[in-house]
Design a protein around this nucleic acid. Structure first.
Lengths: 233, 233
DNA sequence: TCCAAAATTCAACACTTGTTGAATAAATAG
DNA sequence: CTATTTATTCAACAAGTGTTGAATTTTGGA
């Protein structure tokens, strides 16, 4: 596990990114020191700064490294699902394209990717950087998926569409946070490490959620009044 | 806004809790210094330690302060919904009992409660404390709701039940994180500050999600094979 | 009024933080 | 080999961290 002196780590730049990825994912930005990263990477304290500049830039570099790969994997599956559908794609297929590349792809075996996903969960849930960073890396992807969902649910209102995405994103985020809470609550029935099981359940759950907005929509057309903010119980 | 010397803040203990609540919610545990808390509360640096001991104990005290009140509000609505239902309660009523006290109650007007909810979002999504702290404060509540859902969805498997709760909890958590991301993505159609709107959408979405597990369940009884972990696409 | 207890301030401690410039080693080109 | 760039180490910096003990003020009951 430790670095051998006779065979020094060739790419120390990568080692630093890996260590930072893991530490940031586990303890958050402020919970991590450059010394901890350097120790974990087996390099000198000054090296992270030499390669990446100040701490904040290292954080951005970690996020950036895998962003393109991830976005491409998800867009590929979305394109494929749109091609295969003769006319309107199914909601389920779109949601699968959104979830499966992260949860059941080959990447999930790699420890680095798990840490990366946990880091995204941290960022997505952070009031400080949630807006800025997620926008920077994932906005185009999200808009592509929203367009696809508009095809699957023609006439859906933007409000329903984006609140639906909000619920989906929240479930996915909590999955990646890997708090182990569901393992504890369920007494072992659910294992948060079983990402395939998590994926299947989230697909079912969120597909039904979006479909419910479709039904709501058709109900509106028939003249049934939409449940407004003032309608409590 | 600043503290007047002739009329000193009576309960500085509360002022410290309020300031800590806000700071921890916004920047996380490690992103906050005792000096920032003291400054925000308008008290001396040494005072937080005098009242609450070390930093970590102050953090716990903040979480503890409103936990009982919140749990009582949610349990009251759950009990009421269980009483009103002649036999089996509806899934929607149970989910409303889980969400509405936090999202449409009187508390939501108070800035302190908003901060508290954001703090819970932070804790629930944190791999470090997500398990320990959420368990400590909210396990009994969750089990009460799971029991109620078992009444509404008789025969539901634990795996489905807890993954459903996972999705619900994730959506709620992301709502409270208040990252403003949905405002940005939707171009103004959705406002994350409109918690009533958020509540109605989450109720609809997650109710349909749980109901989908019910349908899945009845389909199983009819002999249709359950989608297993190995069944991709 | 006087006094003990509680509340608050003050100053400082030992330690950790991110960052950097100079010194050294390794790699590479001429 | 030599010279030059690149990579890495080392030591130290100024600033900020949580915590604490002693001193001071305020409080409230006898």
């Amino acid at each position: 596990m430790s670095v051998n002196k006779t065979e020094p780590r060739l790419d120390r730049r990568t080692a630093i990114l890996d260590a930072a990825e893991e530490q940031f994912a586990k303890h958050g930005y402020d919970g991590v020191t450059l010394r901890a990263i350097a120790r974990r990477a087996g390099v000198d304290l000054a090296l992270p700064n030499y390669y990446f500049g100040p701490k904040r830039d290292l954080f951005d570099a970690v996020l950036f490294r895998r962003a393109e790969i991830l976005n491409k994997a998800r867009l590929d599956q979305l394109d494929q699902c749109l091609e295969e559908s003769d006319q309107a794609p199914s909601v389920e297929a779109i949601i699968r394209a959104y979830l499966e590349p992260m949860l059941t792809g080959e990447q999930v075996e790699e420890e680095g990717w798990k840490n990366y996903y946990a880091l995204i969960a941290y960022v997505n849930n952070s009031p400080e950087w949630g807006g800025q960073l997620m926008t920077q890396f994932f906005d185009p992807l999200v808009y592509r998926f929203m367009d696809a969902l508009r095809l699957a649910l023609p006439g859906i209102e933007d409000r329903d569409l984006y609140w639906g995405y909000h619920c989906l994103s929240g479930a996915l985020t909590l999955t990646f946070a890997q708090t182990g809470r569901i393992d504890h609550l369920s007494g072992g029935s659910c294992r948060s490490s079983d990402l395939m099981d998590a994926c299947e359940h989230m697909v079912q759950f969120t597909t039904a959620g979006f479909e419910a907005f479709r039904k709501q929509m058709t109900a509106d057309k028939k003249g049934r009044p939409r449940k407004g903010p003032s309608a409590r119980r």
